[in-house]
Structure formats: C-alpha cells, structure tokens
Design a protein around this nucleic acid. Structure first.
Lengths: 231, 231
DNA sequence: CCAAAAGTGTTGAAATTACACCCATGT
DNA sequence: ACATGGGTGTAATTTCAACACTTTTGG
C-alpha cells in the first residue's frame, strides 16, 4: 500500500476500538472489564480494546482482542459509535470505535479471562473506567435496550438450549423490570421462531422447564420480510 | 500535543468523514451529491466529505465542509457508522465516518452549492458514486426510516412554518407509501408539539392549508420523559 | 405432603386501521 | 359553477395490559 501525494497533506491519527462485552449470567446482565497491566493507565479499569492495524478492519481488531481474552470466536458484535473528542486521549489524537459484543457467559474461557485480569461486573457496580469508557458502557446499554425490542438478542446471550423463564429473565435484566410471564410467553412464541425441545431443564425447579432453541431459518425469513420482534 | 512512547509502535491512518445530506423539496426527498473537481477521482460523483484534522472532532470536520458548500450552520447531523474496509480507499488506509444531515432545502445557498459542483438527486436517480458512497446512502436511508418513527424529523427537513399536508408528504416520501390523511393528522396532532398558526399557505390549493410550527419547549419536555413519536 | 417454579386464558382498555364526504376559494 | 386540495368522525379490528390458579415433582 503506498500513499498518494494528495493524501500527504492531511493528518494521520490512531484508531482504536473498545469492546463493551455483555454476558448474561444466572439472571444478571454483566460486563467484562479489565484491570490494565500495561501503560498507559496501569492499574486502572478499562474496557478491552486495541489499536487498529493498517492491515485489519476495525471489527477484525475487535475480534482479535476479544479472542485473545475470552478464547471465543464468531462472537456477535456491532458497532456502537465513534468516540472522537480531540482531547479524549491525553497521549495522542486517537479515535476509538466502540463495539458492543454479546457473549454466552458459559462459553468463554475462564482461565484466559482471569489471566488477563478481566472480571465480570454488573452494570450497577461498575468501577470508574479510564477515559470515556463509562460513557461507552452507558451508550451500549441504551443501544441494547433499543435493540432488544427489534431483535431476538436472546439468541446471542443465551446458550443454544434455553428455557422460557431464562429468556424472560434476560429481558427483565435488560429492561430492569418484572414482566408478566403469560404475556411474555404469548408474545415470544407468537413470532414462531422458537422450537420446543423434548428435554427439560431441571436445575432451577422440581417441575423443570422445557428447553427451546431458535429456528434460525424461520428467523431469517421473517427478518427478510422486514418483520420486527417487539417484546 | 506530543506522542507517548507506547503509542509509537502502532499504526496511524487517515480519518475522513462523508456527509449524506438529505433535503426535502416539494414532496420529494433528495440528496446532495457533487462532481469531484479535485483528485482523487476527478469528474466522478461523490458525497461531500473531508479528512479530519488533528485538532478537530469528526463532527467539526463534517460541519466545516457542510458550511463551505451550503453556507449553512447548525445543521442537524448524526453519525451513521464507520466505513473501514482495509481496501476501501486505494490511495491509503482511510477510515470514513458517515454522517447524515437533514437540511431545509429552501435555506441553503444555491450559488455556493452550484459553485462547488453539487446537485440534488432523488434517491432513485442517484448516479454511481465513488468508493462505498452508494452504500453509505443506502444505510443513511434505512436509518432515516427508522429514525422517523421515533422522532419528529420534520423539524429538521421542513421550513419553520409548514403545513400538515407538507409534513405528510415528507413521511410519504420517507416511507414510500401513501398514508391516510385523517389518521396521519390525528396522530401527529396527538403529540401536542405542533402549534397551529393563523396564516395559511395558499401556494398549493385554493382553500389554503394552515401553517404549523413546532413547539420546541414541549418537544424537549416529552423527549426528556422518554416519549416516542411513532407515526 | 409441601414448597417452588412452570405453565396456562380471559377480559377490558387502548391503539390502529379503514373508510367518504363537505369545505373554502380562485378562476 | 366548478375544480382542487384541505379538512373532518366513526366503527371494526387488533394489540396490549392486567389479572390468579393449577401442575409437577424432589425432598
């Protein structure tokens, strides 16, 4: 890659990406935060991030760092927005692209996460983070709430097999309010993208709750038709 | 601004911004496109954009170039997303942040626009644009449709005084479908953010249509309460 | 047999859609 | 007088919200 003349008069800067990683654990929505072991800001808490290299896209960079830390690949991730205030990074002009990720909290590699000094925190108990990272988390949370109205995000945050009570508690965690189980079930089942399995989850009640899984095919069909999922 | 050691091992690149500028003219939604007079891609069509300088934020950069070309200031603008494919710009690695703007088509400085070789095109008649600019326009259009459901964007696209038939035709242009005028009126008036004026617009009918204006105060109150405007 | 969570229907209120005619006015 | 776009109300349908009891089963 070589640089054309008419570009050289312009300014170059760093581009980074920071990942707002949501996980859902036992009825509680959590965020993966880590304690920095390298400069700058050693010892402070921050999101997981990286500079973007010339030969990778921004989402590549995010996937790369996410894989390094959680061991996960093919994680659902979406761009949030850029954080580009001139003085946001005291070191040098650096634009960061926030990306939020949804992971299945039972999938990730606990040792790896621990080795990097990362920990799960609930939204309410977040420590102060470096730079504008607290703002990023707030923005991501707001986005998640909005997104959950239109798309079955349970698909990304729950294990492949999940129960309706689990799905409901995910939505309750996102919206921070109790929902009526009859109405909730009616609604989510009406979309016709859930397949009921024979098997029951007996870990949380004696009666047991039936497992469901997503019908990806039907889901894609509906999306293609422009149908929204509003819960 | 000086550069810390631990940054120097990373890659710097260019950041640009491209503006997807919507205007609403006489029942038709249009986009401001210009024919490039400078390298690279002289003679081809593109969105209006600029490189971001070290000492300005991305939205500053967009405002700057928008002002240069339309003469307008304080234009409504919002970040769309980044366009960051490694090879998107053949000159050098350059990430572009798309921003869409809504302008009152009767406000802009026609001479200035013409001097820069810019022209209004409807969405359906867009020429081929450079790089990924056609994609940007599509994304912006999709965003606008979604946004129009939640916020009274008429506020940005229409002149200060406007009639309900005008507002309706704006929504019809955005959603590309006819709406029922009784239902439309009922809905938009129910929000209570429109103030009916004494004056009538007689340019499009003999009977004349009453002008309305937005009640900004009430609008802000409602937004603060988290109320949505769904049309 | 009992505690604890899963599962299930109905009813009233609210919002949305469909639909057709009169009004005001410049020519 | 008439053509043109502006303005108005009601009824049917759909969607949403509120609400309580029965089922299952491990201990």
């Amino acid at each position: 890659m070589w640089e054309k003349d008419y570009y050289e008069v312009h300014d170059k800067m760093y581009i980074g990406t920071d990942c707002i990683i949501f996980g859902f654990d036992n009825g509680v929505l959590k965020l993966l935060i880590f304690k920095r072991r390298i400069e700058p800001n050693v010892g402070e808490y921050s999101l997981i991030g990286s500079f973007v290299k010339l030969e990778e896209s921004i989402s590549n960079a995010a996937s790369r760092v996410l894989h390094e830390i959680t061991g996960l690949q093919n994680v659902f991730m979406e761009e949030l927005k850029t954080y580009n205030a001139v003085e946001r990074d005291p070191g040098f002009r650096c634009v960061s692209v926030g990306q939020y990720a949804l992971i299945r909290i039972d999938d990730y590699d606990k040792d790896l996460v621990e080795k990097h000094g990362a920990m799960w925190y609930t939204f309410d108990e977040l420590p102060d983070l470096v730079l504008d990272h607290n703002q990023m988390v707030e923005d991501a949370m707001a986005r998640l709430r909005r997104k959950a109205k239109y798309q079955p995000i349970g698909l990304e945050l729950l294990p492949e097999k999940f129960t309706l009570p689990q799905l409901q508690s995910l939505y309750e965690a996102i919206y921070q309010r109790k929902m009526d189980s009859r109405n909730f079930r009616k609604k989510v089942l009406s979309f016709g993208v859930l397949i009921k399995l024979e098997e029951k989850d007996k870990t949380s009640s004696r009666k047991g709750a039936f497992y469901y899984k997503f019908d990806y095919e039907k889901y894609k069909e509906l999306l293609a038709q422009g149908i929204y999922f509003v819960v």
